[in-house]
Simulated scan of single mutants.
Amino acid sequence: MGRIGSLDVLRGVAILGTFGTNVWIFSSPAGLAAVLGGGGPLESGLRALSNGKFLALLSVLFGVGLAIQHASAVRRGARWPGRYLWRCALLFVEGALHYILVFEFDVLMFYAIIAVVCAFVVGRSAKVIRGWMIAAGALHVTVVGLLTLALFGSGLDGGGPTDTSSWRAQVAFRVDHVLALRSEGVLVLPLGVVLFLAGAQLLRAGALEKSARGHGVRRRLIGWGLGVGVPLNALTAFGGTDWALVDRYLCAPLVAFGLLGGITALVHRLGERTGPLRQGLTAVGRCALSCYIAQNVLASVLCYRWGLGITGGPLWTIGCFALVSTTVLIGAWLWLRRFPRGPVEMVWDFAYRAPSRLSSRRTRCLPDRSA
């Protein structure tokens, strides 16, 4: 299977979109409370544009990548999941380092765990995959429903502002409170299984293909996203903090499927025409892991007190998003003019191939017993 052009664009949109949610945590003096708090209509509307949607889209795209890896292994006759589990281990380590050193709401650790589970399911029959999706989806809806009922009337509280005056103190805080800060896994893990497997099934259904079959799939995705997801998302987004979990973990993923269909349709309609924005998004998509980390590092330097310490209201949040996103877009484009992949991806590739190189070296060093 050749490189899917729309997939790079989708990844680029998803990476920058996740920052559209995270930027509120960085740029506001209130930290996480700025995301969970009410705010005015303008602020609530701006947060609603990105909250949960692009994280869900990124999850679906990870599932697409999983299906591509599985198909490649089948074509080569390689054992599955085999070395894919090593990829998952590397992703978990990378996520753990990102969590400890950069950002307490890292998602890569969760993705690594979800990928291990889905790796053993992705090659099964459509019936088995559908059963896993239904079971995980039912569990997810139940957990979100119970938590919403338990918290209804009290809302969600992001706590007081986090002390950002010391990077070392932040690292210590993340280590000391790892269970509390990683508790989002109760919601992310079952939802991730659904979205990963949905991404795999959408790839096989031709959702990314420029064909009549793919066009039909995309029309249905857009219909669900716009006709069902957007109205429900709008109701919960402006319904107050009591509906925060429903908004982020139930309604937003529906909109994500519409985004996948709409963006893919637009890419196919544009054909070979590439402007600066599409080139930048493609570059970010090809350097997805590097850009995901880079945008959080840049925001930390800009907004945390151990850096420049610039925080403020919605206008600064918009400016911070624009500044960091533009830097990442241009930086990824310039990097790929000289290198084949992003810096983190280069380290990843070296680490992924290390066991094979070590095995080959040991084989060459074995004495020849044939004599």
Rank of each mutant, 00 (worst) to 15 (best):
T162L: 14
A30M: 14
Y111R: 03
V186R: 13
V141R: 01
G65H: 02
A169Q: 04
A48W: 03
C320K: 01
I68D: 06
T264S: 08
S211F: 11
A294K: 07
G158E: 03
G82A: 15
A332W: 01
L66E: 07
V60F: 13
G39M: 14
V60C: 09
L323S: 04
L55E: 14
T327Q: 09
G158H: 04
V267I: 07
L10P: 00
N296H: 15
S211C: 10
A252G: 04
W243T: 13
W80A: 05
C251A: 15
I25E: 09
P355V: 01
S154T: 11
H177Y: 13
L108C: 04
A198H: 01
V23R: 15
A351W: 13
S356W: 07
A135G: 07
V141H: 05
T241L: 06
A244Y: 11
T236F: 14
I263K: 11
M109F: 09
G342Y: 07
G12D: 02
L235I: 14
T274V: 11
F238V: 06
P41W: 10
D176P: 03
A67L: 08
W224S: 02
A172Y: 11
F54R: 10
D242E: 07
R219I: 08
H215A: 13
C291P: 02
R168A: 12
A14D: 06
L46P: 01
G185Y: 09
L146Y: 12
G285N: 03
V175G: 07
S356D: 13
L85T: 07
G2T: 11
E94Y: 14
Q69I: 02
I114K: 07
H268M: 06
L323H: 01
L179N: 03
L189C: 03
G158A: 05
T363F: 10
R278D: 00
T274Q: 15
G39H: 12
A172R: 12
C365R: 15
I15L: 04
